[in-house]
Structure formats: C-alpha cells, structure tokens
Design a protein around this nucleic acid. Structure first.
Lengths: 157, 157
DNA sequence: TTTTTTGCAAAACCTTTGCAGTTGG
DNA sequence: CCAACTGCAAAGGTTTTGCAAAAAA
C-alpha cells in the first residue's frame, strides 16, 4: 500500500511561514509551489489536485497536474499539507493546520461536515478501547447517509 | 458520484438460491456468473474483482475482468453481493448475507477486522444522534492505526 | 430464434514516473 | 553554476463502455 508520507503537522498559517518551512527543509520556493499554496489558502475546504492545477477559487492555475501532485506530496511530506479521502472520487488536499479537523460525509449527496477532533473524542475512545484501533477520521472520514438522504426513496425503488 | 446501486440485501446462502434469485429478476444464470458466485462463496473475506477473475481460493477463473465487474455490479444491484472500500486499493466484494458485517482496517498493515454490526451499535448511535449521519461501516469502514503499528516508528523518523 | 451476456479492445479516471529542459539560490 | 524543479509524455492501477460474436432460454 502507499503509506501516507506525512510528517508531523506544521502550524503554518500563511504563505511566508510556508515558504520558510520549505526553505528549512532544503526545498525551493518555486513559483508552482507558491501557487499551489495560494490555492490551498484560498480554498474553502479540501480540494482536489485537479482543482488546484486548474485554478481553484479564481486563483492562478498551478499548471501541470503531475507537478501539482508532486508538489502536494512534497508539501505533505514536510507537514504543511494533508489529504483526505472523501468517499469515491479523487483525494482532497488541505493545509495541515486545518487538517486537524475531521470529516463526516454523506455518500449520497456528498455533503461534507468538518468537525473539531474534540467532537469525535468519545467515538474515538470507544473504538480504541474496544478494538485497539486508533481511527484516522482526518484521513478516512466517517461515511454514511445524512438525515435528508435517508428520508429520500432510494434509486432502486 | 457513482451511487451504489445495491438493492436490499438478499439472504442468499448458497448457489442454488443465488441462481433462483437471478432468475426471479429476469437474469440468466450464465457460466461466468456462476463462477463469480462460487468464488465469492469460497472466499474467506472480501475479494477484489481481479482476484475473482483470476481464480480465488483455487477456484476456476471467472475470465474477463470487465465482465466480472459487470457481473458483480449486476449481482450487487439485485442484492446478492456487496462491496467495501478497505482504504486504498481496489474495492472488495462479498456475498450480501455476510456483508452485514462491518470492518475496521489498519491503514498501515492493512489488517482487516470484521465485526458484527451490534459491536458498533454504540458508535453508530452516538454519531447518528450527534451529527445526524448514519454511518455505513459496511461500505466505508473505520480506518486507522492498529495497536502494533502505533508502536512502530513511522517511516518518516 | 431472440435477448442477454461475453470477450476483447479501448477509454476514462486518478495517480505516478522518466526524462530533458528550465529555474532558483 | 548546479542541484532542484518543471512540463510533457507515457504508463500504472482501477473501473467503465462499445460492439460484434457467443450463449442462454
């Protein structure tokens, strides 16, 4: 399996701090990387590599998709960025300082609810003590059916 | 998004019942479909389409992968089969009568723990009452780190 | 015989990799 | 200047689709 090569989350809250963090890791603050970061700072929530490459939230496009993936991976490796798997579809990327947040997703309407880890503490504790597994809801969220979608007839009748 | 077109789970416990169910839905009990079902009955847990097509558990190969996907989708549609997303990697298929079980997966060592829904009732209830979301752990399991993997040093140092 | 299903080929989708040329420090 | 980085092209892994040939009923 492809393990997430994410370092410890860095509390990087702005572009300058991100650039400093890159430099301190011997990385270059290239134009493409700045644009990726700007897109992430501008985004309302987790966004796909394709959205970033194509220009999210009215931002300058980051250009090549392969390079965008490489840059996201690099930034994730040094702890500035995280990604989350919201059900089907491509992985979504966020700044790590926001990624402490955890997600609950409706698998039908795709509505994403972002919550503070504390709100899932009880759930996490029960699962850890009962099964020995420490859930990673920031990476693989809780997926299910929201109230609205449960009330709608299924598409199978 | 590609919604799961799964009908209500049918309590189909053997090949004959599966064939009867297919017929009752106007489907043909083709050789390829029988082989897919035999592979699923023989499998110890959820298996990928590729494993089924290639011959799981010493079974006759089901042949073409595209047809296998089509057949799994068809069987899922009539409620005989279900699939689950165990972290990264391909979807895994099971017979629906076994799929009431829910899963917890370690994202590092990929160990899969299969539990009866009852064991997750408390967790499910807390999440439903707190967030309004009815979790579908049989389709998107709880993913995290198992005890062993938590104790090991990460591959980042 | 008629309708469904198959197998093959091709494509779609997400992501990674190789490489030659460009750029940042 | 030189290592790091980019863009492009290609490929890898998973899943879907189109279509003529084959099989089930």
């Amino acid at each position: 399996m492809t393990v997430s090569h994410a370092g410890p989350a860095l509390p990087v809250h702005d572009l300058d701090a991100a650039i400093a963090a890159m430099r301190s890791h011997g990385l270059r603050a290239s134009a493409a990387r700045r644009i990726v970061l700007e897109a992430l700072f501008a985004a309302a929530g987790p966004v796909s590599a394709e959205q970033i490459a194509g220009g999210v939230a009215g931002r300058v496009p980051a250009g090549d998709l392969a390079s965008t993936y490489r840059n996201l991976e690099t930034l994730e490796h040094i702890g500035i960025v995280r990604h989350v798997h919201l059900g089907h579809g491509p992985g979504r990327y966020t700044l790590a300082y926001r990624a402490g947040r955890e997600y609950l997703v409706c698998e039908r309407c795709e509505e994403v609810r972002e919550v503070e880890p504390r709100e899932l503490d009880d759930v996490r504790t029960v699962i850890r003590t009962t099964f020995g597994l420490e859930p990673a809801f920031a990476h693989f969220p809780i997926v299910g059916l929201c109230t609205t979608c449960r009330e709608e007839p299924s598409d199978d009748g």
